[in-house]
Design a binder for these strands. Sequence first.
DNA 1: TCAATTCCTATAGACTTGATAGGAATATAC
DNA 2: GTATATTCCTATCAAGTCTATAGGAATTGA
Lengths: 133, 133
Amino acid sequence: MFSVSAKTQYAIRAMAHLAKNQGVSVPSAEIAASESIPPKFLEGILTQLKSSGLVLGERGKNGGFRLADKPEAISMLSIVEAMDGSVKPVSCVEKAGACAQGMSCLPRIFWIGLKEAIDAYLGGRTLKDITEG
Amino acid sequence: MFSVSAKTQYAIRAMAHLAKNQGVSVPSAEIAASESIPPKFLEGILTQLKSSGLVLGERGKNGGFRLADKPEAISMLSIVEAMDGSVKPVSCVEKAGACAQGMSCLPRIFWIGLKEAIDAYLGGRTLKDITEG
DNA sequence: TCAATTCCTATAGACTTGATAGGAATATAC
DNA sequence: GTATATTCCTATCAAGTCTATAGGAATTGA
Ligand code: FES
Ligand code: FES
């Protein structure tokens, strides 16, 4: 339970790599080699990060990827959500009628609280926190 | 990401049901009907809860399940762990060598912090909290 | 024109999840 | 002791997700 996908872990390592190389465009293949990430898999990850607006991609020769913002302005939550979507612990939080009780269902409130705790943790740290001490 | 399995959600609803029927043995089929849980699926869940020591099962006629302890003594964390094992966000927290850096790897510390935040939330509430206001 | 690179789509194998089926073991009631 | 209600055990299945790879089209710079 609560396992973080390899995709998300790769994404964060890749973002950290870009944070250490600000100002220059780093090719996907270079990140892959440096961080031990399957190259073709990483390509897809970076595309996904790009369409979420977290990185900028430049094609062609001397192309590559760079951060779209300063590391201290990129929350961990935004990276996680870019990969796996919003953190939704349980189905019944989204679709009603999963259980007999209604909106005041106590388990439901319990799960929502968990989501908020996770979001608070992830939203409270930035890329800078995991690249510097 | 971070979706809670149907199994765990069912388990908690079942435990809540038992909490409302303390002192008597409730048959699996009755819980299933009352909580809209697939009967045979629930059987397996209750067996699992039993082998984790959270409930007691009694066979034969008039048999069924009951809580092994008072609701306020059963943490949500214990239920979640009984279903899906310990909360381990990332692989590299367990098996070393997943990334180039060592124990001081900042992403690693970040993930451990997340695990602790989740455990703190889950460990800080009990079955009683989700059965009473 | 050439080389490097992102970008797009398709695919495949392994694994996980949710659920069902059939029956063996066990306890109670009559 | 026989019928009945129940847990318990094992096997199976379909559907989905996750991880990864493959091949090539589009774009850019030299
Ligand atoms: S709404 Fe999810 S358990 Fe009731
Ligand atoms: S140990 Fe997990 S990213 Fe380094």
